[in-house]
């Protein structure tokens, strides 16, 4: 407060107060997730929740094994990342290195618009278009499955990964490109050997944030993943990730029941998992920045 001037103290206090809101929300989220999920540990053990293969929350006695749900989340996340990341990086490189300037002004917003498609719309496309096609084409029991959800999830995360990766590629200074071209490198060689490595921390961050979004995304998996709580054995098996389980079941659960607390526990798992990815991504990005300076 060295430089505090008269008349400046009150606004400063008020603004700091408002700024605290975000922090408060974050703390409250963590607090309420923990508070509402802890009681489940009185009913069953942590090991049974994390390792149990049976998710029968409404049976008597109920069984709260979340392994199939966790596997479902992981499977959709990995498969969608596998589908989306190559395309996203291609897009990022295209926009930053190969795209003519004028077209870029058009393509970048287009990509952004894709990112604004409501997830419920994509889920609906999965149900109405992709599922029947998959079912017919591959002669499946149901087209609502891991693959379907992963394709749509891929569409959701492409704009995120591509735009963050593009930022990172574009921020590589031009003099590095010049140096490479001046040695007789082609554009592709310059991109893969100079620009891409220099942008790597940002690109890793982009991929991690895409994965984070895929782990936490709800509507697409709720509508298109098929919803059966078993560990998938093929990409055409139906899955029930953590997010869709919460969304589908919370509405019909009495507040304070074991099932209610179990769903909060699932939420806590999601929260911690995405938080870890987020912090890891932030760290990579920060380290990359230091290395560049």
């Amino acid at each position: 407060m060295k430089e505090a001037m008269k008349g400046d103290i009150l606004p400063r206090r008020i603004i700091s107060g408002f700024a605290l809101t975000g922090m408060a929300i974050m703390i409250f989220i963590l607090f309420f997730l923990v508070k509402e999920s802890l009681p489940i540990l009185r009913e069953t053990s942590l090991l049974q929740i994390l390792g149990g293969k049976e998710w029968y929350p409404t049976y008597a006695p109920p069984s709260f094994g979340m392994l199939p749900l966790i596997t479902g989340s992981v499977a959709v996340t990995l498969l969608s990342a596998l589908l989306a990341i190559p395309l996203s990086l291609g897009l990022a490189i295209f926009l930053s290195e190969a795209c003519p300037r004028l077209l870029r002004e058009f393509f970048k917003p287009t990509l952004e618009i894709l990112g604004f498609l409501p997830s419920v719309v994509l889920g609906f496309i999965g149900m109405m278009v992709l599922a029947p096609w998959l079912q017919e084409r591959f002669d499946l029991m149901t087209g609502l499955n891991l693959f379907n959800a992963s394709v749509l999830m891929g569409i959701m995360i492409v704009p995120i990964v591509a735009s963050i990766a593009e930022d990172s590629l574009s921020s590589v200074p031009d003099d590095l490109r010049d140096a490479s071209y001046a040695m007789g490198a082609t554009r592709w060689e310059t991109t893969t050997r100079v620009v891409f490595p220099a942008a790597l921390p940002g690109i890793l961050e982009a991929c991690l944030l895409g994965v984070m979004r895929a782990v936490g995304e709800t509507m697409v998996v709720l509508m298109a993943a098929g919803g059966s709580a078993v560990i998938p054995k093929s990409v055409f098996d139906a899955v029930r990730p953590l997010t869709s389980t919460i969304a589908a079941e919370m509405g019909e659960t009495p507040v304070g029941s074991g099932h209610y607390h179990a769903l909060f526990f699932a939420g806590l798992l999601l929260f911690l998992f995405t938080w870890a990815i987020n912090l890891f991504a932030a760290r990579i990005e920060a380290r990359g920045r230091r290395w560049r300076e």
Partner: peptide, 25 residues
């Protein structure tokens, strides 16, 4: 720094977890 971290963390919270928070809070 903590505030920045909180805002960044908030941006990564899954939407369904916001739903759970809204319900309980």
């Amino acid at each position: 720094n903590i505030l920045r971290l909180a805002v960044r963390s908030l941006a990564g919270v899954p939407s369904v977890v916001f739903g759970l928070f809204g319900l309980s809070f």
